[in-house]
């Protein structure tokens, strides 16, 4: 019974918070509600018994990705409302609603036909992280490694893009002179 109460509580709160995320005009409100919704999704994982996924949700989505969003928000004046220039509100509402409806139908179709079947049913005596590891390194090994390589490529590209003047220090006198020279060259 507790699980059901928790599930409905979390679901209602998540939907409400994500609605706030979409509908509010204040950047800070939308960011806060998105982060809170992410925490509650972790809560749903916990009620399902997927402790590891819940914790990963917390660390990755709440701790890292949302914090990066927040970092981007610092370029705005978050205390002011965003001015949106929607010309056709009803069209957006219609398109958004249709997309959502389609998504719901796609996701719920297997449940309706009762075709859902776990390919890797939970094994007895295996803890949560171990189960995740087994699936990840057997069935999904290739996608996992491909994702890892892609992330590595993205990381190296990011370092190269951001690190053009990384080896110059502004703290020593010689480097300041070098920096001034570079600036002068830029001006020319």
């Amino acid at each position: 019974m507790y699980e059901q109460i928790a599930f409905y509580l979390f679901s209602v709160l998540i939907i409400g918070l994500f609605l706030v995320t979409v509908l509010t005009k204040n950047v800070l409100y939308s960011m806060t509600s998105l982060a809170a919704g992410m925490v509650l999704i972790a809560g749903i994982f916990f009620t399902l018994g997927a402790d590891f996924l819940g914790v990963v949700q917390l660390i990755v989505y709440v701790g890292a990705i949302m914090a990066l969003y927040a970092f981007a928000m610092m370029f705005f004046d978050v205390t002011k409302d965003v001015k949106e220039n929607n010309t056709n509100g009803s069209l957006i509402f219609l398109l958004g609603g249709l997309t959502a409806l389609m998504f719901v139908i796609i996701m719920s179709a297997p449940i309706m036909s009762e075709n859902i079947q776990a390919l890797y049913p939970p094994m007895a005596g295996v803890t949560n992280p171990q189960a995740v590891g087994m699936v990840l390194f057997t069935k999904y090994l290739v996608p996992f490694e491909v994702a890892a390589v892609m992330l590595l490529v993205a990381m190296i590209a990011g370092i190269i893009l951001a690190g053009k003047k990384m080896d110059q220090s502004l703290t020593t006198e010689d480097d300041v002179i070098v920096e001034i020279d570079i600036l002068e060259e830029d001006e020319k």
Partner: peptide, 15 residues
């Protein structure tokens, strides 16, 4: 008493 206690603590401190 969840079996990912250490990670949970880290996750909450991250939050």
């Amino acid at each position: 008493d969840i079996n990912v206690g250490v990670l949970f603590i880290l996750g909450m401190m991250a939050a």
